[in-house]
Design a protein around this nucleic acid. Structure first.
Lengths: 199, 199
DNA sequence: CGTCCAGCTTACTCAGAGTAGGTTACTACC
DNA sequence: GGTAGTAACCTACTCTGAGTAAGCTGGACG
């Protein structure tokens, strides 16, 4: 710990610091087990400050989630620029995602915990951050695919996101599966379909 | 309400009744917002009884989840018996799933809430109930497909389950999407792959 | 007609989310 | 330098809800 005396800090800076600490605690303990008192103490500030800036525990988690989602979105988006073919774009996006979940464990852990907010007032906002992801996929696909109608395109995007998130959770239990292999698995089903493997 | 005086009841019966009530409350309020006091009162019994039989709030939710997962598993398994081709088996299974989530809203809602247990001691057991589902899919697929290796087959099963669950959540926001249409969408991607839609 | 015990209850403890109201250090302007 | 204003901060609570200790009771079975 820094022997530097805890100083006052402008709102924006303090918020960033709080989010940083909260990300660690939520990721380590899980949403339910994390306590606002502990987060406040680690920040070096008293509990009411957290409430001043984030209103509630949910609000704090939501802020963390937004952060992580933004990074994920950025990463996957960047990965697909300059892809020539649809297949290439898909593969690059998938690889970026599977690399993300391996390198940025903490951020990914947080995104898994977003589910803990289902059924709470913050659920709508969580869905909103999630929609950023599906919208990105949908936009990508509409650039490269003839999806039929819009509804079908939306459904396909949800489908892809759900599949990848689940596969990512599975990867956590299988360290031997590299991001490249995971991408391979995903591409195999997504691109070629199951048809070509039917007996 | 029945004017019949609350009587004592054998353990097994009381447990069933508790699970029934808990399912309703968890589905209606969400896991976090549901209170053990309320569930106890609706059952017509005092709170320590719930702890006597289920040990904790998590334990009670887990019991409910097991129940719902068992039904879902049963339904999808039954749907696929007697399917001649791989394509037929897949389609039947998917349809059964999408019908389930529409008809048994409460059970489905519960399964969505299982995510609330991530990061808690019960998380492992939740994963276990989930594995029942992926194992079923994996078994089905290994009967109809040449999956390459076992790891790939497992991955594919996780992939399918994740995709369908996410699509199901999406369907909740789109009443106009019938189970048949959802199945159509899912089959389109899963069976044919995205390749045939690339520009 | 006692005795045993499964099913049940009342009446607590305790942790942790959220809040009311006051205090202090930095800033700006004279 | 002094002092007014305010953003950052704190102490000391309340209150809800999970989980528990310890004892009561009705009916089955000798």
């Amino acid at each position: 710990m820094t022997t530097a005396k805890r100083k006052r800090m402008p709102r924006a800076d303090r918020m960033r610091q709080m989010i940083e600490v909260a990300e660690e605690v939520f990721a380590a303990r899980g949403y339910a087990a994390a306590s606002m008192d502990e987060i406040a103490e680690l920040v070096g500030v008293s509990k009411p400050m957290l409430y001043e800036y984030f209103n509630s525990k949910e609000g704090l988690l939501l802020a963390c989630i937004r952060e992580s989602r933004a990074i994920l979105r950025e990463v996957t988006e960047q990965a697909t620029v300059g892809a020539a073919t649809a297949e290439d774009a898909l593969r690059r996006g998938l690889l970026a995602f599977f690399v993300f979940i391996r390198e940025r464990r903490q951020a990914w852990s947080l995104l898994r915990h977003e589910m803990a907010l289902i059924g709470t007032p913050a659920a709508d906002e969580v869905e909103e951050t999630r929609r950023q992801q599906t919208d990105l996929i949908a936009a990508l696909m509409s650039g490269h695919f003839d999806s039929g109608d819009d509804l079908r395109a939306e459904a396909a995007a949800e489908f892809v996101v759900g599949a990848c998130e689940r596969l990512a959770i599975w990867c956590e239990r299988h360290d031997e599966v590299s991001p490249e292999l995971a991408t391979e698995y995903a591409m195999d089903v997504l691109w070629s379909g199951l048809q070509h493997r039917a007996r």
